[in-house]
Amino acid sequence: MLKHCILGFDYSESWQKTCDRLPSVLQLAGVQKLTLVHVVDTTRRMNVEDSAAAAASHLKELSASLGAELGIAVDYEVRQGFAATELHEAARRHKADGLIVLNQSHSAGRALFYGNITLNLARLTRLPLLILPGGGPVVEPSAPVLLATDGSRPARVAQRAFEHFLSGGRHGLVLWVETEEVDNVATINEQVAEITSRHEQVISRHVKGSAVREIVKTAEAEQVALVILGKRGTTPIQDLLIGSTAEGVARECRQPVLLIPANTEI
């Protein structure tokens, strides 16, 4: 599903630590080719070490070492401009299947997530976006995957991605959180029952409360390998609203999160 991914790379300490966790995440996602992309921010004053040439030299070494370690093809590219836009454009130009970024918002609180690269890219992308938590736990490739559903069209598209990860007998958990706004309880129950009837290794859980809180809590308690949920928006205007639940989970979850845009073909 995510055979070729664009990985947005910077030189932060968090990214250096995340590189140690990449093998298990890439194995889980089935990535066969990785293109490292660093975007030089031309809006700020740069030092020599921030130049495109310096970045290219560093990425060349990193791509070679990662390729040898991961056993997959790893390429690199340096771009200049607005980070989220350039990463999205790189994915389009390389005809990639998805993007991988790091969310560093956990220790800094909610404010930093707004307007940062991860949120902006989540708004822009028409491709699946894999968000890795800074400082999160090492993913066990054999751990279950979690589908968070609310019965909506984006959730049904995310369901197809979820079922893709079940190949080979991987265990799964379907979670739906009943909030005060939910008015289609019977429909969601039918959809969840249909999934579990077709996959004996999948269990379901129905809880009530805050969708973001319950999804994040369940993901951590079950130590899932991946949280999968749909991203709202099928037009450029709608894309500015990825959905409060998707945004909240992407911001707060300590496990990797895969956002699936509603227009994704799987």
Rank of each mutant, 00 (worst) to 15 (best):
C253A: 11
G98F: 07
L259D: 08
T125A: 10
G230T: 06
L241C: 10
R254A: 05
T187V: 15
H58T: 12
L66M: 14
V101L: 12
P236Q: 14
P144R: 08
G81M: 09
F9K: 11
E140L: 07
S167D: 09
L124P: 06
L28P: 00
T149S: 11
S57Q: 13
K3M: 09
S107Q: 13
R93M: 12
L129W: 01
L175H: 05
N120H: 08
A55L: 01
T118L: 05
S152F: 14
H88L: 10
A68G: 12
T125E: 06
Q16K: 14
V177G: 06
S204V: 03
G98K: 08
Q255D: 00
F113Y: 11
E61T: 15
I260V: 15
Q223H: 03
A83S: 15
R45N: 00
L62C: 08
L28M: 07
S244Q: 12
T187R: 13
R110T: 08
L121G: 02
G67N: 11
R160Q: 15
V101N: 05
A225D: 03
F162E: 03
R21I: 00
Q201H: 11
Y76E: 11
I266V: 14
E190T: 10
K3W: 02
L129F: 02
G115T: 08
P236L: 13
D50I: 00
A56F: 02
L146C: 01
R160V: 10
S105K: 04
A54N: 04
D150K: 01
P236I: 15
P137C: 00
L119D: 11
D97Y: 05
